[in-house]
Design a protein around this nucleic acid. Structure first.
Lengths: 191, 191
DNA sequence: GTCTATAATTCGATAGAC
DNA sequence: GTCTATCGAATTATAGAC
């Protein structure tokens, strides 16, 4: 960091406020003035510490999905374990900011979309390759997995589509579908 | 309509330009000036015909999924038929504007999110109820169906997550998953 | 019906006093 | 390190000439 220890509280306060605002309203609807007001500081301080609004966004977006190691997991338990992990993640404060902050902005902010692609390539694809034993269509299965996961975040937390089921019910249906996506057939027949 | 026939071309030109812009950049990144420039008119005309930016958005967003009638369809063909329908819809110019225009804005614009909920309630739920013979968990299945469909639009057309598969491959995997969501088990076991 | 001109805000970002 | 003051640009929206 290029700043002294004395300003640490201010910098962290700005970052925390920024994460909340970006999570809630996305990139475009979040203003530097809002963030500064939340942090109890002057807007010029935000620029001083993070250079620009884009710089602030980059600093606020640091997504680690904290994916579990699936090395020794039996193949038919993958769906349940991952479903449990993601729902736990989303229902925590950390997870809410971690994924919503990106998804809320990605639809209209190119830099955020690029960041999602990076998370997918660096975190999801390696997981699926390891989980499936690196089958030929692992990348396609990873994409389908991400499709349903991001779709769930979108429908449940952003669009708030009815019916809103409880977390355990969500885990159950998610586990079934993720299991199918990871180890089931992806062409014709089979219910 | 409250305006004369003489301005019809202008009004339609504005609306067409607005749909393209809202589709491409979402609500926040689209300005009345852009729309007016595309339509070859003055920005004040946009206000005159549509009242405000929100009024223009409302006029531009009129989503009809054109869902097929599934009354006589054999249950085990539902997935394939719906998958084919949606991919054909998305790959057409009409479909691109129909769904992208909403989804691009829904993540950060509350009014757009509300519109998506309406489309879900009025079009998707009735379809799934009819398709499944109105089973007890039809609404949950409708939500899961929407989750995967919106996830697909998000990942494929907005985030452009790799790998980008061709339309036929997309239909195949989509058909399998939609079939499972509509008629498969949603709890435990079964691959 | 269309455009010019402009009002009224709001934004991101900068300069400089303390 | 923090804040006051402000610039310059962009936005939505309006008033009125033609």
């Amino acid at each position: 960091m290029a700043f002294t220890e004395r300003s640490r509280a201010a910098r962290e306060g700005i970052l925390a406020a920024a994460r909340r605002r970006f999570t809630e309203g996305g990139y475009e609807r979040t203003t530097i003035r809002m963030v500064a007001a939340d942090a109890g500081l002057d807007p010029s301080m935000v620029i001083r510490y993070y250079g620009s609004k884009d710089g602030l966004f980059s600093a606020a977006v640091d997504v680690d999905l904290r994916l579990p190691d699936v090395a020794g997991v039996p193949p038919d338990e993958l769906g349940w374990i991952l479903a449990r992990h993601f729902v736990d993640l989303w229902e925590s404060d950390f997870g809410r900011e971690t994924l919503l902050i990106l998804l809320r902005s990605a639809a209209s902010h190119p830099a955020a979309a690029e960041r999602v692609r990076t998370v997918f390539t660096d975190q999801v694809i390696p997981l699926v390759r390891k989980a499936t034993g690196d089958v030929a269509d692992a990348d396609v299965r990873a994409a389908l997995l991400s499709t349903h996961l991001l779709g769930t975040v979108l429908c449940r937390y952003i669009l708030q589509l009815p019916p809103v089921v409880d977390a355990d019910t969500l885990v159950a249906s998610l586990a079934v579908l993720m299991q199918h996506i990871l180890t089931g057939s992806l062409a014709e027949d089979q219910s």
